[in-house]
Design a protein around this nucleic acid. Structure first.
Lengths: 242, 242
DNA sequence: AGACCAATGTGGTCAGACCAATTTGGTCTG
DNA sequence: CAGACCAAATTGGTCTGACCACATTGGTCT
């Protein structure tokens, strides 16, 4: 890892864990350069990164910590990675958003009235419901489905948001894979419902089936968290939940 | 505007308007420095910006142009600004996404079962339906409503996405304000429906009323586009639509 | 013709300096 | 004593020039 990445990571972690209060001034670039035994250029690059993440506001006179709701979408990945395991609440929120985006994309795709598009859509769903998948392949298939839906929607903003979110979310959730209870029967049933709704071009049914799938996925993820925490040292009891 | 901003803007514009093909190599930093009569540091900063926007991939050996669907959400603002007026299609897509986010946020807020939250929510909606607003104030009120809903949702990813989108979207849409046909009667009716749905905690009604409001807003925006184009030189006829 | 290799060009990093603007701390004034 | 004021120190912003490791390129050798 290069110097500026190291500095940026340390500072990002410090800010996101509350080492610096919101509004507080960060040390000057020269101080940080001395502390990290780095060139000021390296510190500058790191600070630029913080600014891009929207967690610090750099101005002549000093850099200050911004509140989290001023941040860029790109902080999500860092937020998930800051602790030993991601926050259950944040993970659930992300799943909610992804569901909203997928539904928006599917509906947009359906409203384009393009038969080829619809066939493509059903094709990316089929692997989920028809084949005998293990959990690993299921995740891959689901991700492919998401990407396919996004592309079919033709809605660029949705595509960009979903890509950013999935790119940050996926890697951080890898640790849960071994703890998720496979339930391919239900998965397949949910996927069939989605496929049927698509075939019928029934918007309400599409919404309904995707919502149900998302709800199941969210519950399953929370159960995976339970399993993970049960088989791991619950850390120190102090402040482990915040 | 500082040098690196000028360079970044020019390069961003060139890339987004297709002056460079996807996959094509950009000129080297030293070449660009010579072309813009700048030092390499300024060019480097500009290139960093392109990389952050997700429109260029910088690697030892050279920087290459990325396809648009690899970009960051932050390109939206640049995409809207690249042409004389924003693309109608993109604007509509953004409105669709914002509606999806708002609905997600409202539902999340409602499901928190927090009476104070709900009261706050209704308060941010009230100005839209009760007062005699001109169009300008209506926009402000609507934006306030969005922000209030986002905050009330407690869903950080939704907040961050909406903030990013609105920050990029708002300024670029200012040019349309004078061409939007005011229809405060309908606006008020739609807002009252939203308020009633919230008061009843009826999720389906909430979805329905917000969808209708969004639909009306989208149509009104497209009509504003018509009015704008009617009163502006339709540019040269060649390739004006692409 | 293909494999190989050296020269060139590329981005990545660093060091040091200067500038304009802000911040800061003391001083002066009421 | 409080507030306005000013000068010195500090801050981020910019620029110059140089070196490095690696990718690309073009020629050479087999």
């Amino acid at each position: 890892m290069s110097k500026h990445e190291e500095i940026a990571q340390t500072l990002t972690r410090d800010i996101l864990t509350g080492q610096y209060r919101v509004g507080e001034r960060l040390p000057s670039e020269r101080d940080l350069a001395a502390r990290f035994d780095a060139n000021r250029g390296a510190v500058r690059e790191a600070m630029k990164k913080l600014e891009q993440l929207g967690i610090a506001d750099i101005q002549p006179g000093g850099a200050r910590v911004l509140p989290l709701n001023e941040a860029s979408l790109d902080v999500i990945g860092h937020l998930l990675a800051v602790r030993d395991e991601p926050s259950r609440e944040l993970v659930d929120q992300i799943l909610v958003v992804i569901n909203a985006l997928v539904q928006t994309a599917v509906i947009a795709a359906l409203q384009r009235q393009d038969q080829d598009m619809l066939d493509t859509l059903r094709e990316v769903i089929r692997p989920i419901c028809s084949e005998q998948l293990d959990l690993e392949s299921f995740y891959d298939a689901q991700t492919s489905m998401f990407r396919g839906v996004m592309e079919a929607s033709g809605n660029l903003p949705v595509q960009l948001i979903a890509k950013s979110l999935l790119d940050q979310f996926g890697p951080q959730m890898a640790f849960l894979r071994d703890y998720a209870v496979p339930d391919m029967t239900t998965h397949r049933a949910l996927a069939r419902a989605m496929d049927a709704a698509l075939a019928a071009r029934d918007l309400d049914a599409v919404r309904q089936s995707f919502s149900e799938s998302s709800k199941f996925h969210r519950e399953r993820t929370q159960r995976a968290f339970d399993a993970y925490e049960a088989s791991h040292p619950p850390a120190r009891l102090e402040a482990s939940a915040s």
